[in-house]
Amino acid sequence: MLLPGVLGAAGRAPPPTRAVMVGQARGEDPAALLRAGQRWLAAGNFENAVRVFRRLTETAPDARAWYYLGVALLESGEFADAAAALRRAASLGPPGGNPAVAHSLGTALLRGGDSGEAVRVLQEAATRHPGNAPILLQLGYAHYTRLEGEAAREVLGRAVELSPDDPLARFYLGMAEAALGELEPATRSFREAARLAPDLLDARVALARTLSQRGLEDEARTGYAAVLAAEPAWPPALVGLAMLDLQAGDAEAAVAGFEAALAAEPAQRQALYNLAAALARLGRLEEAAEVRERFREAASNAPEPGRSLARTASRPRR
C-alpha cells in the first residue's frame, strides 16, 4: 500500500521536452538516464536514483528531470532539497501546474515540517485540479496533521466522493472524524477502508479501537483478533487486545499481550505504561517498578506523540 505522495500518485509525470535534445548533444542519453533513475527509484535505491537524476538535471534540465529528482530526494528523506527541486519543476511546467508536481511538493513540505506551506501549495493545486483525488487526499492529510479536523474532514470527504474505492481516503477520513471525537462516522470510515484493503492493518486496528472506545468490546476484540490472525506480532493490535483484557480485569492476559507487543517493539509506550499497571494489579510490584523505569526512559527518549490525532493509529504501512 503506497502512501500518498509517492511517484505517480496524483497524475502523470511532466512530459519530456526539447531539453532532452540538449542532453543528447552533451553525449549522455537523457532517456537512458531517466530509465536508469526510474529503475533505481523502483528498486528503492534512492541514493543512486538521486545521483542519476542529478545528472539528468544537468543534461536535460526540464520539468520532468527536476520532478524525478524531487521525488528521489523526497524518498531519501531530504525534504528541503526535494521541495527546492519540485519548485524548480513547477516553474518549468505548464502554466496551469502539473498535479503530480504539486502533490509531491506538498508532500515534501509536509514531511519537512512546513505544513502551513504544504496546505497552501496543495490548496492551490486542489483549486486548479478539483477532480484530483490524490491531491485532496494529501491536502486533507495536511489539514489533519495541523489539527484542523473540520477542514480535514471536509477535504477528505470530497476525496472519498471522487474516489470511493480508495482505502487511504477512507482511512484518513476516519482519522479526521476520530480526531473530532465523532466515533460513529469514524467507525464507518475505518470499516470501509478495511473492507477495501484488508491488508491495511492500521485501518483494522483503528476500527477495533474505535469500537472499543464506543463500548463495543466484543466487536473490538474480534477485530483485534482478526488482525493478529493476519499478522501475529502486530504491536498495535496486541496492545489493543491487552487493553481490553486490562479493562475487563484480566490482568494476566493483559500482561501477556503487552509483553508480546514489547517483544516486537521494545519501546512501545502504551504497552510499557499499561504493563506496569497490570503487573502492579497482580501484585508483581518489583517487576512493575522495573517496567515503569523502562516507560520513563522511553518517554524521555521519545517526544510526546501529537495529541489525539495519534490516538487511533499510525500511518498505514507501506
Partner: peptide
Amino acid sequence: GLAAGVAYNEDGRA
C-alpha cells in the same frame, strides 16, 4: 501518579 495510573492517559501520554 505513574504507579497508580493517573499520571498519563491510557496511551501512556501526558
